[in-house]
Every structure is written in structure tokens, then in C-alpha cells.
Design a protein around this nucleic acid. Structure first.
Lengths: 351, 351
DNA sequence: ATGAAAGCGCTAACAC
DNA sequence: GTGTTAGCGCTTTCAT
């Protein structure tokens, strides 16, 4: 409504310090070719006047926008928010990403995009045109979407791909899902389990396959069968119930199950309850994600912890380093997941 | 790094449609004085070219920034994120706020500010200067902070105060905490409780007092004592334990307790467990907030549900309406909290 | 109803 | 090392 102009502009600072706009600009952007005393004088004026550069104006004249976009899947994110099941993926992204942004004078903006929509391109172009972000963070299931990757690459926008191993444009960051699945599986093997079931995530998440790979690898290394022990889920509670029932309906049901996410683990817990199977006495259970609620279920769940905040922080650092023209590694950054032991995994019943 | 210019600008559209910049601008901003046919022609060019206005440029020339800032308390928000206790305040703000923003072509940016710091003013001015937001949403405990309110008012920025009843600059929105506390208290009274304890929140949150008021009012209306039944907490788990112990140490301990937030309710539950007091058999418990975890505790908690998403959505609508010069109500918007019954409240033991 | 010109705050390119 | 100039993409005036 109100005609709002910047109260203190670079002009005011320049006048106050008795220098040219350019010199002020140089000080702001920490550019060379300013005598220390000049720099000091300008900085004093800036502080005294409380001057803060306008991002819009900076962006207009072709410099950075100091904005980093974090892309998340619209459908799933909204469903998580609505469902209020404690999924704190976005919060952890903000914790790691936003705080790291702030350290460098950047801001992070959460942006939701449709996975399956064909106007994903239009959506993204719209966001880019409107905001002109300096960088973009891709999260599963978008991290290896060729449409998005090419678009970002063509626009010469720095971007990070969380949950990806692929080389190519953009920085890959991974929590090493394959290793995480091995961690979980091996823990169960160590406890004495021989038949360990696995509930997989949906195929449009690359990490789903990696987790299955990890489980397969551990089983193979221990000389254990996997036939009939893999069930397909889609990360939803309903699919988890179906998968758990499928596994437990077998003639030789598993004595332990690893679920690819918390919702499906919760579903497995409920299926157990329905069937009179007690966890962990009759069935051991390990989940992926370690969202808050799994600490409050009965029993609390042994789980794979995803270091989302840490990964988001690293992603932001990579983008900013790239923006600054600094060298960035071109191999995937690995921030390994860990296993937290709680009360849902125990040795199998010796019957 | 890369010199990134807008791919498609208003100029391209103007050229493509064979009209002046001004006409395109008018179409974009839905201004009057454009013949329908012109409008159509321009719109076609816009669609074909995939043109999206640059927020930075719009902002530069003195119009809106289409940015709304959601201010949250830095310390508490970060603690919540780190603690991973399932607090989903920010998520619910995003759910209601961001989606409503999107409907109107706005974006929401989460901003953290220090409550107690004296550079709160500098911080806020910095955010305003850098981002030039069209609106700001204040959340407790900032909703009635005179420093912030005056600053925003002086800058003629539309703002909403969530969890406030005060008239004055900015739009007040409330979940009617007083009524919510009555709801909880009366439910316990209806169950037959006579001695109902209350664990209050910290004084720097206005809503803390309102909740106490509600409890007092209900108790008084039912002719019940409140002496010795009020304990002070600060929303932390630790303070909740202390408060619960204090209440239960009395000669005539309460048979029911209302806690001003989930953490303190959880703490009360734990204190009960430590003292061999079973909920709800020996002690009924109602919590405020209804964050995800209280559905998974044993027993699950009867709780006051805060319609945060709804309030955030309304706040955004008010700001946008104000921006558009539309009339906005100057009385507080009330989005009442509700009570969800679970398993932590039952009739008192008849001993 | 439409167009032309001026300028928003800042930086890049080029002078000095 | 520092200043000057010319835009960036858009919305305001103000003409027509």
C-alpha cells in the first residue's frame, strides 16, 4: 500500500562518508582496491546509519540475490504437515540450511513442487524468474530428475542434490542409504536373526533401491536367504500394513523386519499388535528416518538416523562456495546415517 | 557467479504483443484501463513466452515485494528443531501461511529473531531493508512487543499479531486461550474432578496469563478452590517436572492437572510414572498444543488443539487484503482452539 | 485507453 | 585506489 522506499540507501552512506557510491559498494561486497582507512570510514557510516543493502537492488544490477531455494515434493510435504505425524524433514532442512544461510548473509526459501506434474518445468521456471535464486537444493524424489537438473544447469544456477550419488551437474550429497541399510541389517544379524524381512520404499525414490541393495548385501555376506523376504511399500502407513502382513503371512515369516521409513515401521508395529505378535519378543523391528514419534511408541524404535540438518548445511555451503567461485569437490559428499538403538530389536525367540 | 539476466522480460512480452511496456504492466497487475482484447493479446504473449515478473524489479520500482515474513523466536525455534520432540509449530505456520501466500502469488519467508536481545531492532530493520517484505506475521512471544510493533508501524508495513487481543496497529488474531483453558478445565470438572491443578507457561508469553485466567474462571464458576493448585513452568520439560512435583507434593494433591503445553504435560506424565501414579487412573492430565507425539504417548493425551495453520492462513489473508487496500476488520480475529479427547482424562478415583 | 519518460538502489564497466 | 556512467526490469508519473 504505502510507497515504501529504502530509508537508508547506498547514496546516504556515500554522502555521509564523503566517498563515491562505488567505494561503498566495494566495501559492502568486500572487494579489493579499497584503502583500509577508506574501508573503515565507510564501515563506520554504514553502522551509524544502520544501512543494509537491498537484496532486490543488488539482484537488479546483476549481482547475487542471496536467496537459496529448497525444493520439496509438494504432495508429500503437505500430506506430512496435514497428517501431523511428527515428520520433521522440513524442520531439519531449515535447521541446517537456514542457519547456515544466515551465517553467510543468505536466506533460504522453501518451495514446493509437484513431482508428477508436467508443468513442473513451468513451476520451476516461474520460481526462478520471480526469485532469481543463487542456488537450489534438490531433495528426494527430485534429486535426480533430469528435467530439473537440465533446467538448472541451463540457467547456470548452482544446485545441490540431496540423496544422490550421480556425478554430473550439481553437487551430490548422500547419507549413504546403502550403508545405512547394512547397518540395520547387520545389527539384526548380530542379534542372531536369520530371516530378516525388508519393506522397500517407492521406486521413484532412488534411495529406495539403495536401501534394498544394502539389505541384500548384508544378507548375502552372512549367507542368508532373501527370497520372499522383500515387500514393496510406498512410504505410507497403509502400504506398510499391507507389506507387513504380506511378510508375516509367509510359511516361514521373518523374525525381524527393516522398514524403509517410520510410517511403515509404525504400521508394522500395529500389524504386530493386531496379530498378537509382540515387538521385540516375537519380532524385531528397525525403522528408517528416526522422526520424533518413534521415541514415544511402545516399544520405542531402534532406527536409522538421517542427518538431514547436517546434509542441508553442507549443501548450502557448497552452493555458496560455488557462488563465490571457490573450488568445490565433484565427488559426492557423504554424511553417513547412524543407527540409534532403542527397544524394538532384540535376539530372536529361541523356539 | 554467472551473469544471470532475466530470460524473458516485460520488454519481450511488449514487443511480442505489439504494445507498450505499460500495457503489459497493467495486465500483469490487473489494473483497469485495458481493453479486454488487448488484455487477451498480452496474456497470450505472456503465456507463450512463459514470462514471469521479476520480484526484484517489481520491488525496485516501488511496488510490492510479494514477500511476507513470519517472525519466530530464534532460541525456542532452534531448540525445538534440535530437540526433535515433534513440535510442529513452524510446519503448521508453513502449511497455513505458505499455501495461502502461494494462492495470491506471495511467498513466505521464515525469519528468526531474538526475544531478549537489544539488537532485535537492528535485526528486524536489517530484514526489512534487505527483503522489503509487504507484510510481517508476529508470533508469541513477540506478538505484543512494543518495540517491534512500533517499528513495523513506522515503516508502514502491514502486520498480523498471532496470539494477541490488543487493538492498535496490526491485526490481532487469537485462538482464545482463555476459552481453551476453560474447555479443558470444564471437561475435568464434568468428569467429577474437584482439585484441578494448573501448570502455567512463562510470563513473557501473554497467552500464559490467559490460560491461567480461563482455568481460574472455570474453577470459580464451579465453586472450586484454586489455592495451592497453580504451579509455574516455562514450557520446558524440566520446568514441567518441577511444577508437577510441586503440585503432587501437596497435602491434598490435585486429581487432575492441566499443563500449558505438551512438554510440561509429558513431564507430568513422567513424574507420575516416577511416583507410581497412573494416568488416568490416579491422575487425569490435559495438555495444550497437541503436537504429534502426544498421540503416541501412553496413555495418549487429551489435549487442546491449536489451529495454527488456520490462524496463519487468516493472518496472511489479512495482510494481503490490507495490501490490496481492502477493508480489514479492526477487532481481533478469533479462531477457537478445540479439545480432542484421548486417554489421559478420566473420572477421579472414588477413594 | 494507451504510451513515453523518469527513476527505484545497486553494480559492472570503464575512466581517471 | 577511486569516481563516473550506464543500465538491470519494472512501475510510477504524466502526456496523449
Amino acid at each position: 500500500m504505502a510507497r515504501r522506499r529504502q530509508a537508508v540507501t547506498i547514496k546516504h552512506v556515500a554522502a555521509d562518508a564523503g566517498v563515491s557510491l562505488q567505494t561503498v559498494s566495494r566495501v559492502i561486497n568486500k572487494e579489493p582496491n579499497v584503502r583500509p582507512e577508506m574501508k573503515l570510514r565507510v564501515q563506520e557510516s554504514i553502522d551509524r546509519l544502520g544501512y543494509v543493502p537491498s537484496i532486490a537492488a543488488q539482484r537488479m544490477s546483476g549481482s547475487r540475490s542471496y536467496l537459496i531455494l529448497a525444493l520439496n515434493d509438494r504432495e508429500r510435504t503437505i500430506a506430512d504437515w496435514r497428517g501431523r505425524q511428527g515428520t520433521d524433514w522440513v524442520d531439519q532442512m531449515l535447521l541446517g540450511g537456514m542457519l547456515t544461510c544466515a551465517e553467510h548473509g543468505y536466506r533460504m526459501i522453501i518451495e514446493l513442487v509437484d513431482t508428477h506434474s508436467d508443468h513442473i518445468e513451468r513451476e520451476l521456471l516461474g520460481a526462478i524468474a520471480a526469485l532469481q535464486p543463487d542456488g537450489v537444493i534438490l531433495t528426494p524424489p527430485h534429486s535426480e530428475n533430469p528435467l530439473i537438473i537440465n533446467l538448472l544447469h541451463d540457467h547456470k544456477i548452482s544446485f545441490a542434490r540431496i540423496g544422490s550419488l550421480k556425478a554430473g551437474p550439481g553437487f551430490a550429497l548422500t547419507m549413504d542409504d546403502e550403508r545405512a541399510a547394512r547397518l540395520a541389517t547387520e545389527h539384526l544379524i548380530d542379534l542372531g536373526h536369520r530371516r530378516i524381512g525388508f519393506i522397500a520404499g517407492p521406486a521413484d525414490y532412488e534411495l529406495s533401491a539403495w536401501r534394498v541393495d544394502g539389505w541384500r548385501a548384508s544378507m548375502a555376506a552372512a549367507g542368508l536367504e532373501t527370497a520372499g523376504l522383500l515387500a514393496q511399500g510406498d512410504f505410507s502407513f497403509a502400504s506398510g500394513k499391507q507389506a507387513a502382513n504380506h511378510l508375516l503371512d509367509q510359511d516361514a515369516p521373518p523374525s525381524a523386519i527393516v522398514a524403509s521409513n517410520d510410517q511403515m515401521a509404525l504400521a508394522t508395529l500395529e500389524v504386530g499388535r493386531e496379530r498378537g505378535i509382540e515387538v521385540p519378543r516375537d519380532l524385531s523391528l528397525i525403522s528408517f528416518d528416526d522422526t520424533p514419534i518413534v521415541r514415544f511408541t511402545h516399544p520405542s524404535l531402534t532406527a536409522v538416523v538421517q542427518p538431514i540438518a547436517e546434509v542441508a548445511a553442507r549443501a548450502v555451503e557448497l552452493i555458496i562456495a560455488d557462488q563465490a567461485g571457490r573450488e568445490v569437490p565433484d565427488t559426492p559428499i557423504v554424511v553417513p546415517a547412524t543407527l540409534v538403538l532403542r527397544n524394538s530389536a532384540a535376539p530372536p525367540r529361541s523356539d
